[in-house]
Amino acid sequence: MPEKSNREAVLDKLREEALKVRRNSWRALHAAGIGHVGGALSAADLLAGLYFHFLRLRPGEPEWEDRDRFVLSKGHGNAALAAVLAQAGFFEESRLDEFYAYESLLGMHPDIKCEGVEMSTGGLGHGLSIGIGMALGARLQNKDFRTVVMIGDGELQEGSNWEAAMAAVHLSLSNLTAIIDYNKVQQSGHIHEMMGLEPLAEKWRAFGWAVHEIDGHDMGEIVDVLDALPLEADKPSLVIAHTIKGKGASFAEDTYLWHNNAVTDEVYEKALAELEAQS
């Protein structure tokens, strides 16, 4: 067999981490007994790409001042964030078994007190403004750290995002990237049935962002867009990542029923078996 190219080897490693993010997300959600399955699984590949290919971090020194910043604005995806932080070495993977536990720093939503978490989120429509503040903080202190904010699609129904969308362009924050986890489903149904977002890319372009659309489950596309940041000089970058809610668990894909649902022993075993088959 011919030796794999370096790129393929890198992508394989990232795919492996992504699979592990899914496994670990299920582990945390199973420990909790219930949780936001769909939005954790849709973001798993993106998070693996970010934490194992893009973000400059020192897991042993989480407060390192020149670190890149990542804000999970869609805070309900915390199972996946906790998973990737554990995998990156911010804390032991065994802590995932403490998801929702008494006095745990791993609750349904990220807590700034937890190692590696840059901001407490969960109230929707907050992350992009916070990211602007971080990006401005870098500029004002002549630091070259980069800020990435992951926004949920349903979350874009909150008007505060559009205040921030305006401001990031006005301030020419090319050190800021927003990634939309566009899984097309929110708590009560499909987004286009609830409060549609389309034409989404055109909206952001009209606001003045540099926009690129990718398949948010294709690691090659994820890596390529991250390597291309900033997409244009003097503009903030927006990546619209088309994803599938509940990706990797056939029974949970593309349905609002798995936005937040019980994770029984039976569900957990089924989910792990499906992931095993994909590995």
Binding site: E65, R69, V71, E118, M119, G125, H126, G127, L128, S129, I130, G131, I132, G133, M134, A135, L136, G137, A138, R139, L140, Q141, K143, G159, S160, E163, A164, M166, A167, H170, L171
Partner: peptide
């Protein structure tokens, strides 16, 4: 000029930006 950032009539955005700035060691 760089130390005054008026974001216009957008208090929610202003508050979030202030928080983000503070995390980086600035005092907004």
């Amino acid at each position: 000029p760089d130390r005054v950032v008026d974001v216009g009539i957008a208090e929610q955005n202003a508050m979030g930006i202030a928080s983000g700035l503070a995390t980086t060691g600035m005092h907004p």
